[in-house]
């Protein structure tokens, strides 16, 4: 049993990671961090840098949480990577970050969050980025 979190180097991604860590601390489960890229552009800002991944791993180690950090680049979109990991690790929770999308934007770009919500076989915790006021 485990928790899967879809991570991006962005406020939403950080919020999702924080929420996932809180959950993992409570239940002491395996935390799987997924930061994927389709790898279809020369530059992908959603793909976290080495140092950032190292920082996350260090943090999780310090917290004493059993963890896995994966950066799959296999031409799949983020939603199917998260869903695949959830199936593989028999997740009992998926944590994702949400951001605002217009309906038209959703039609054209598709929505990762929507796909995960609809297709996941376990509860999904969707968090929003922390407000900076």
């Amino acid at each position: 049993m485990s928790i899967i979190v879809g991570y991006l180097p962005s406020p939403e991604g950080t919020a999702a990671l924080e929420a996932a860590i809180t959950q993992a601390r409570k239940d002491a489960k395996l935390l799987v961090v997924i930061n994927s890229s389709r790898g279809d552009a020369l530059v992908d800002k959603r793909y976290a840098e080495n140092e950032e991944i190292a920082g996350i791993e260090e943090r999780l180690k310090k917290e004493g949480i059993e963890h896995l950090v994966q950066q799959p680049v296999r031409g799949n979109d983020a939603a199917s990577e998260v869903l695949q990991a959830a199936e593989q690790h028999r997740a009992d929770l998926i944590v994702i970050g949400l951001r605002r999308r217009t309906p038209v934007g959703k039609l054209i770009m598709g929505s990762t969050a929507q796909q995960i919500l609809l297709e996941a076989g376990c509860p999904v915790l969707a968090v929003k980025a922390a407000h900076q006021s």
Binding site: R38, D40, G75, D77, L107, I108, M109, G110
Partner: peptide, 12 residues
Amino acid sequence: ALGSRHYVRDGL
């Protein structure tokens, strides 16, 4: 062929 699977967006 090059790996995009956003059918609607690609079609448009």
